[in-house]
Each structure stands twice: as C-alpha cells, then as structure tokens.
Design a protein around this nucleic acid. Sequence first.
RNA 1: GGAGAGGUUCCCGAGUGGCCAAAGGGAGCAGACUGUAAAUCUGUUGGCACCGCCUUCGGUGGUUCGAAUCCACCCCUCUCCA
Length: 410
Amino acid sequence: MTNVFDILQERGFIEQSTNEEEVRELLGAGPVTFYIGFDPTADSLHVGHFIQIIVMMHMQKAGHRPIALIGGGTTMVGDPSGRTDMRKMLTQDEIAANGERFKKQFSKFLYFDDKDGAIMLNNAEWLLPLNYIEFIRDYGKYFSVNKMLTAECFKSRMEKGLSFLEFNYMLMQSYDFLELYRRHGAILQMGGNDQWSNILSGADLIRRVEGAQAHALTFRLLTTSAGKKMGKTESGAVWLDPEKTSPYDFYQYWRNIDDADVANCLGLLTFIPMDEVRAMTDTAAGADINKAKECLAYEVTALVHSPEEAEKAQKAARALFGGGGGNLDDMPTSEISQADLANLDITTLLNKCGLIASNSEGRRLIKDGGIYLNNQRVSSFDQTIGAADFKDGYALLRKGKKVYHKVILK
RNA sequence: GGAGAGGUUCCCGAGUGGCCAAAGGGAGCAGACUGUAAAUCUGUUGGCACCGCCUUCGGUGGUUCGAAUCCACCCCUCUCCA
C-alpha cells in the first residue's frame, strides 16, 4: 500500500514537517493517532477548513486515526496567527453554538462510529477548568518568552500590538497536543502552514514534559497562484453550510477559478487520481481547461453537499451558460405574489431578490447596463414590471454576466 | 505613570476652516474583448423621493455664518521612558 505521506505529497498538500523522513516512516509503519484543531469562530466550516478535512479523509483511508478537535476553549483566547489585529471576541454561548454546528458538519466526512473510528473532542473540556496559577507553574515554566517572540506568528504582530490574551494562544494549543498525547496517544499534529509555530511548540512541550517525541506536519494554505487566499467572495467566505452558501453558488465558485489554479485545486480538494488530474490539466489549452473546471466544481460540490446537488448545480449552470435548453429549476429563486405586482418597478424587484444592497446600487447597475430582465438589458431604473414579463410563470433576472436569479409569480 | 505619534469612507492612505461625499492606490461591481478564465481598456463604489436633499472622517460637547480640519474632555492604538 502506498504511504499516505507520498499521497499527500503528490497531491501538493505538504509544506513543512518536523522531519520528513521520520514522519514518512511513522505513517508507513502503522496506525497513527493524529489531530487537527478547528476553532469555531463562525457558525459554519468553510473551504479553508475543508482542505484539512480532506487530509483527515486521506489519513483515515490509510488506516490512521483522526481526532477532530473543536477549539471551544482556544476560541475563548483567539489565535493571533496570520492576523494583523485582534479577533472579535465571541461569547461563550456563541462559541458553544458554533462548535455544535462544526460537529454536525464533521460527521459528514469522517467515520466516528466504531472504536477505531475518528474521535471528536472539544478542548473546552480541559481548557476551561484550568486553574491559572497551577497552569503557569506546571506548564508556563516550559515556555520561553524570548523564543516565542521570535515565532513568525507573533512577529507580524510586534508592530501592531499583541495582547497578553492572544499571546497565550500558543500555550493553549500546546497544552491541547499534550492532553491528546496523554489521553489518546496522539503523536502527530497537522494543520495549515500558519499553524507551524503553534504545532511545534506543542511537540516541544510533549518532549519536555513526557520525554516523548511528537511530530508536526503542515499543509499549504489554499491560495491562488497569485498568492491570495482562496475561498473568499464578495459576500464573505465560501461556506460548507448550504444555508450560507448554496450548492449552486458553491459550484459556481469552483467553476470560475483561474486557469492557473485548476490543477492545484483538483489535487487538494478532490480524490481524483493524480494521473487523471495531470491528463486533464497538463495539455488543456484554451477552452479545454473548462472541462477540468467543470470536473472540479462537480467533484467538490459532490463531496461537500451530495452528488445529487452537484448534478443539479451543474445542470442549472449549463442551462444558463451553455446557451438554451436545460433545467432552470435549481438556480437561486425568489417568489412574488400577484399583489406585489401592483406598481412594481425593476429596482424594487431587484431589492426583493437580494440582488442589490440599496436602490442607489440598482440605479448604478442599470445605468452601467448591468441588469437584464429575460435577457433584455434594462435601460431605465423606473421600468415597471407586469404580468407579461412572467412568461410561463417566471421571469429571469440577471446581474452582470454571471449572477442569475429566477422570480416566480405565484 | 511620563513624553511623543496617531485614530478618515470596504482596506491602505492623502486631506489641517468653505472649492470635501472627502485625492491616490488596493479590492469590489458593471461595460468592452473572451472560454462562466487571465490580462487589458472604460465606467463606477454612503444613502434617498438622485440636476436636489440627508448622514459620514474614534466619542461627547464647544468656537464659527461655516469644522474631517480649531478648542475642551473622554475612549482606543503605537513608539520611547518608568
């Protein structure tokens, strides 16, 4: 059987490890219990988390045991890594509620059932009851402030300022690793490359306290070829929760990524064998790359939502962009009543559908020629909408080239 | 605690009494060209009953015909000193 380390490497995940050879051997030798932490700072996981989940899936497939750690405790502190300012403080209730949402989402991707299955834990369990004096006496003594200050994750904050609260984050995460080592024999922590210093610090703590060797392995963050973080849209992150990012929008996000990022994403976000990925993208010149994009969009949507949802999204997208035919049932839709129809103008309608944030924006868009009703450019912002615009009971609104919205007249 | 610098529209960052809804850049949005791509060019980016009106420049008061700009107090951030 192929060593999962090689798989991860081939697919482009691996960025840094404590010792490449040792970690590789470790993963080849037998089942390893490892963990990845997720701080519940929002009410849904997003694609940045998804890449970590994919890693856990690869690892579980290879016979290793994942611990999905929900950071109910660490979120109380807030990770300063990769941030230029302090995070918004969340209340304990919000954190707990978010943690519950995470929990549900995880169960979709990993097996937790049997005794060898994945484990889901929340570090609130051991972090919240910690006693301050006891903790800093027993563990604080192992941390060198001088050394911590040289860590990359703090360096960037030396100018903008770093509160003592956030400075403690590294200790909390390190303690997690130690706790999971003690409870479940976890000897490997993985995470995004921004977690490198936090993870290392935990491995150090285990060595100092327990005299045992623990390992760190970090992955590339999901970035575009231009180095920008992926998974962001104008309306925020690309969420895994279908309520927050509809399967259609999710599909479209991947369908629209840059040519240069397709191969990358196929490696990181799907399970398509790498030789197929290469076959699809290596030679794909010009418009052929679109096939690879469709494949990517379909696969990721199928994984995150379901093959049925992916199918629907694909059909809707093809119907809209492929020119005629196809099924318009699965695109974003609003309903209006006969009563709404009285004196209904285009701006009001756009507003109702959530396509514009203000009437001013609507005016602007119409002035710029960016609004279409039933594929006819709208030229006046006070154009009225009547029953005649609803052929077959619906009207098709479009904003710009890509944002379609169906309005059903009830 | 002391001294200094600073808090401006989504972000960075100009602006130091009227010509400021506020330069410039980034980012977003739209148009053209395309492959639902990139690059490029153009337009645009507080709100509204939109040739006009209303609300914005950390907060609260004040000076003034008029304040993002001046004054007072307060809050917050950074740097140096303790």
